[in-house]
């Protein structure tokens, strides 16, 4: 039957942005690889939105919260039935958990965290950042199906104006007796995460102490962005590791990256230099961060960041 299967994740009643991106590139791949774009999920309410992003059918498994075992079994059943050329998962926590498990069960190859995809010569060709963005590898996945996880923010989510996807109920797998989800604890303030954010405001050692991260948080909040951090600040215990940008943190590529008091160690630069627009504020004119900044401001972040926060608030109020 061929075609493309995309794991469509839903949060708060909407498709996750990363899943919309995966559907969008999946639709383009289906045009060259042949066959339909179809989605796999657990929420039939996503059918209308999945359709708008080009999915012809939404296969719904009777599952609720994500756990590895049942989701792998359900998606494996679907792949056996649909026999797609390509299976895509957004590179979310769940996508990254499920993709390798499924690939091993299918005995197929998977390209992780890709930022470009094309179907050429009967193979899936993917580009992926390696060495945290210090290099780019182009890989070819020759198995059937070929699998990939897409890097959040790397592909544009584009509506295709399709009809509501046809909902097809699939059989439920047996429950997993090996792993049990006891509890999900949401971070207090529902903070925006750096992996998916369009805007990131990052703080570095130039903040001098933990409490000064409030300056970064205030700006991030005003501008609608996520809070990022350099490794030094995480290692010093000023902020949680989830915020760390760079080689042992997250590699990010938002539309706008604002770095304040971040000198720009090679690991940090590797993790953020593919951002579309980079603003750096640092009092040291020789700081390496200026080499990748589109706009570099040599000055005192303790003066400039609060002034910028106020300016942003004012601009938004108008």
């Amino acid at each position: 039957m061929a075609g493309v299967v995309v794991f469509a994740e839903v949060k708060d009643g909407r498709l996750k942005k990363a899943s919309r991106e995966a559907l969008s590139i999946g639709r383009k791949l289906a045009q060259t690889a042949g066959g339909d774009l179809v989605a796999f999920g657990v929420d039939r309410a996503a059918a209308e939105e999945a359709g708008r992003y080009g999915a012809k059918r939404l296969y719904v498994a009777p599952l609720t919260a994500y756990t590895t075992g049942p989701f792998t079994t359900a998606l494996k059943q679907l792949v056996d039935q649909v026999k797609p050329s390509i299976v895509l998962l957004a590179g979310t926590s769940n996508g990254r958990d499920l993709a390798p498990r499924l690939a091993a069960r299918l005995n197929v190859g998977v390209a992780s965290d890709v930022d470009r995809l094309e179907w050429t010569g009967g193979k899936l060709r993917a580009r992926r950042p390696v060495y945290s963005g210090k290099a780019f590898a182009t890989v070819e996945v020759s198995s059937t199906p070929a699998m990939a996880t897409t890097r959040p923010n790397a592909f544009t989510a584009e509506e295709a104006g399709g009809e509501t996807a046809e909902v097809v109920q699939i059989a439920g797998p047996a429950s997993d007796d090996k792993v049990k989800l006891i509890e999900t604890k949401t971070a207090e303030a529902e903070e925006l995460t750096i992996a998916e954010a369009d805007i990131i405001v990052s703080g570095g050692r130039g903040l001098k102490e933990a409490t000064n991260f409030s300056l970064i948080r205030d700006l991030a909040h005003a501008i609608g962005g996520a809070v990022g951090a350099s490794r030094a600040t995480v290692d010093a215990g000023w902020i949680d590791h989830q915020h760390q940008v760079g080689q042992t943190g997250r590699v990010v590529s938002p539309n706008l990256y604002i770095a304040a008091g971040v000198s720009g160690a090679i690991q940090h630069l590797a993790g953020m230099s593919s951002s579309e627009h980079i603003v750096a504020i640092n009092k040291d004119p020789e700081a390496p961060i200026f080499r990748v900044a589109d706009l570099g401001v040599v000055g005192d972040l303790f003066q400039i960041i609060p002034a910028l926060t106020e300016a942003v608030k004012k601009a938004k109020a108008h």
Partner: peptide, 23 residues
Amino acid sequence: QRVTVVALELPPEKSGGRKIDGG
């Protein structure tokens, strides 16, 4: 097998943009 690297390349060197005085 399955996944093979066909090319490895370095990202384009960024030249750095505008720098302004934030005095």
